[in-house]
């Protein structure tokens, strides 16, 4: 689909936090009228998934390399609730620019 933005969500080992964050990302994108495709992976798989999925934005609940050349956001506010509104705004802005 034209204009579809790809978001890669990464977490530690269990994929659990990535799934929770992925749901939130889909929700806020939908609210903002942005079409997104979301993929999830473990932190160790991020580089490989960048090649295959070519994400516009990465949201991670665990540290990922900083030299990926793609905007990376810390997704923990989606879990803690603290700083969530700012994070939403930042992700939407990055998706808008992508």
């Amino acid at each position: 689909m034209n204009g579809e933005k790809r978001v890669l969500v990464a977490c530690g080992t269990s994929i659990a936090t990535a799934t929770v964050v992925a749901e939130k990302v889909k929700e806020i994108a939908k609210e903002a009228g942005i079409s997104v495709r979301v993929a999830q992976c473990k932190a160790a798989e991020v580089r490989g998934r960048i090649e295959t999925f070519n994400p516009h934005v990465i949201v991670a609940t665990t540290p990922v390399p900083k030299d990926l050349g793609i905007p990376v956001f810390n997704g923990v506010p989606f879990l803690s609730g603290v700083g969530m509104d700012e994070l939403k705004a930042q992700i939407l802005e990055a998706l808008g620019k992508a």
Partner: peptide, 17 residues
Amino acid sequence: RSELLVKLLQQLVEMFQ
């Protein structure tokens, strides 16, 4: 099971917020 962990986490996160 990881699917169950996801469901649990979603509810815990709601609680913790």
